[in-house]
């Protein structure tokens, strides 16, 4: 077991109401790794992300993020944990009443009300520069395109220099070119900042561009955990079919 693993999940079971979505999920992500979680629609990818990021309470199992066990005894985990991680949501989830600059600076402004405004302004400009969004501080989220919103969301996720970045369907709703640009940006950020990334997606192009390792979910279970090359050569039939864009339904029935 890697003692420096920023994310460790053991025996995770989660769901909504009476419906079980995830069962007995184990996984471990190494420092600096880009881990892709993939699977068909409704297999529990987003639920897994929300659980490991401490945004939803699991039914059972343990989740360790950056060496800290998520503790739900007093409601939602808060504080230090979230200061070292960032999340890029599927729709970017920018606060629509705030400008891009206010959105990006929000985590720092709330955590440190005494922060020097000039320093904050410089930091926001730097983060927007990192995601190629210079000069958009005064725009409202409604004035941005889908790709720009995602980049602004990414800048906000990076503002506190996180060690771990969660991305929920980063390329969803984007055209192939913008999607590719976002993938390149994530790779560049990993290279320059050394951030560990946990990315949920089912876009094959993104998976091929980003993945160090993949975790394949099917029916709430992990059915494959390893490298993409391993998955394509020795993975279960369902995983190989998925990666080859083939339907495995007919085969099973046949």
């Amino acid at each position: 077991m890697n003692t420096e693993s920023p994310l460790r999940v053991k025996g995770l079971k989660a769901g909504y109401g009476t419906q079980t979505v995830l069962q007995n999920v184990d996984l471990e992500v190494a420092k600096g790794e880009i881990r892709i979680v993939l699977g068909g629609s409704g297999c529990g990818k987003s639920t897994l992300l929300k659980n490991v990021a401490g945004l939803e309470k699991p039914w059972s199992g343990t989740i360790e993020v950056l060496g800290q066990k998520l503790d739900w005894s007093e409601g939602l985990p808060t504080g230090d944990l979230f200061e070292n991680m960032g999340i890029l949501f599927q729709g970017a989830a920018l606060i629509s009443s705030l400008t891009v600059g206010e959105n990006v600076s929000l985590p720092l402004r709330i955590r440190n009300p005494d922060i020097d405004p000039e320093m904050l302004r410089k930091k926001v400009a730097m983060k927007l520069g990192q995601v190629k969004m210079e000069g958009t501080e005064d725009k409202l989220p409604g004035e941005l395109s889908g790709g720009m919103r995602k980049r602004a969301g990414l800048a906000r996720a990076l503002i506190a220099d996180p060690k771990l970045l969660f991305c929920d369907e980063p390329s969803a709703g984007l055209d192939p070119v913008t999607s590719r640009e976002l993938d390149d940006l994530l790779l560049e950020l990993r290279q320059t900042l050394g951030i560990t990334m946990f990315v949920v997606t089912h876009e094959l192009d993104s998976i091929r561009a980003l993945a160090d390792k993949i975790t394949f979910l099917s029916g709430g279970h992990v059915i494959f955990d390893g490298t993409l090359a391993d998955a394509e050569s020795n993975g279960p039939q369902e995983v190989r079919d998925f990666l080859a864009r083939r339907s495995s339904k007919g085969k099973k029935e046949g």
């Binding site: 990021a53 945004l55 944990l81 979230f82 960032g86 949501f89 606060i95 985590p107 906000r156």
Partner: peptide
């Protein structure tokens, strides 16, 4: 949910 993720 984004607010929660920012420890807000």
């Amino acid at each position: 949910m984004a607010l929660r993720s920012m420890a807000i």
